[in-house]
């Protein structure tokens, strides 16, 4: 019985922790962007502006939640929830520390890929249901971008799977005791990170919502907490991809023993979150066809080659 209670406690902690981190990222991102652009960022509400998050939350909760008359009501309401649900479900398989994992699935990576592929629906459905040209174009771009980059994401992870011999995340972490996967799987890491950027449609690859071309793309018509869900969902996606990069390529909770494992995990995860923000601060948005040809002509062959070489070496060593 007590085991069940501990499990429920872990679930609640992971859920609340991730949503809190995602909300806090709004502040972190604005501050760090400001640092890299030689500004201050939000520093008025509370010490160093840390209560900016509360102010934003209060604002977004009390905004009018307007559903325009021309939209497809049901789909319009369902769309923003999908990204929250799929991203939060994906956290179920992330091992934060030995024993702290919601579901130790033996198809962990596949579960993550499945959830991220379902996440594409949020963009497509939001774009379609908004009944707006800009949203539709955003939805089309988002669909094409996400299903393309899912392919490379899956292929880049297969090298890790071959090395660990398992889809289980905990096994993958334990396998990295000698050497982190980033060394033998450097190409896989780079491809996974780029694909992760595209999957979360973060700033260098934010062409589904490109403000300067499509107003706000698929969420042009959204307001209030429905928009907030897209917003928090995006930050959850960043957290998820950072956590997955940590687990799959940087040894998860492994680290020198002067710090507890969960701290090592969080340190690595936040480092990747900051890389996300840094990329946003520095890189311009590629053109849509550039993104596509870059993916299919460079990343796909590279990922296949990486898979082939990894498999060959593993077979040779046996």
């Amino acid at each position: 019985m007590s085991e069940t209670w501990i499990h429920i406690l872990i679930i609640v902690c992971v859920l609340l922790g991730m949503v809190t981190i995602a909300a806090g990222l709004i502040y972190v991102e604005r501050r760090m962007l400001a640092v890299w652009q030689e500004r201050y960022g939000p520093n008025r509400v509370g010490p160093f502006g840390i209560f900016q998050v509360m102010a934003d939350m209060v604002k977004i909760f009390f905004k009018e939640d307007w559903i325009p008359g021309f939209v497809d009501r049901k789909v319009f309401i369902v769309a923003p929830t999908i990204i929250m649900i799929t991203t939060l479900l994906s956290f179920a398989i992330v091992p934060f520390a030995p024993g702290i994992v919601v579901a130790n699935l033996n198809v962990g990576i596949l579960f993550f890929l499945a959830m991220s592929s379902l996440g594409a629906y949020t963009i497509v459905l939001a774009g379609w249901a908004s009944n707006n040209k800009y949203s539709l174009i955003g939805g089309l771009r988002g669909a094409a971008q996400m299903i393309s980059y899912e392919v490379f994401m899956g292929l880049s992870l297969m090298g890790v799977v071959i090395l660990a011999g398992s889809f289980n995340m905990t096994d993958i972490v334990m396998e990295q005791k000698g050497m982190w996967n980033v060394v033998p799987q450097f190409i896989g890491f780079v491809i996974f990170f780029i694909a992760g950027l595209a999957e979360t449609h973060r700033l260098p690859f934010d062409i589904p919502e490109a403000e300067s071309e499509l107003i706000a793309g698929f969420h042009s018509e959204y307001s209030g907490m429905k928009f907030g869900m897209f917003f928090v969902g995006e930050y959850l996606g960043i957290t998820l991809v950072s956590a997955m990069t940590t687990v799959l390529f940087f040894g998860g909770w492994l680290g020198p023993s002067f710090l507890p494992p969960i701290v090592w995990f969080l340190i690595k995860m936040f480092a990747f979150i900051l890389v996300f923000v840094l990329l946003r601060a520095s890189l311009p948005r590629p053109r849509y066809d550039q993104l596509m040809s870059w993916g299919w002509k460079i990343l796909l062959p590279l990922a296949l080659l990486n898979l082939l070489v990894t498999g060959a070496i593993v077979l040779y060593n046996q």
């Binding site: 596949l110 579960f111 379902l118 669909a143 094409a144 899912e150």
Partner: peptide, 25 residues
């Protein structure tokens, strides 16, 4: 579980989204 995951990835995640893509157009 492997087939279950593939069902979601391939059918729900890839094929259906392509069909929706076509219908959107």
């Amino acid at each position: 579980p492997f087939v279950a995951a593939l069902e979601v990835i391939v059918y729900a995640g890839a094929i259906m989204i392509l069909i929706i893509f076509a219908i959107m157009m």
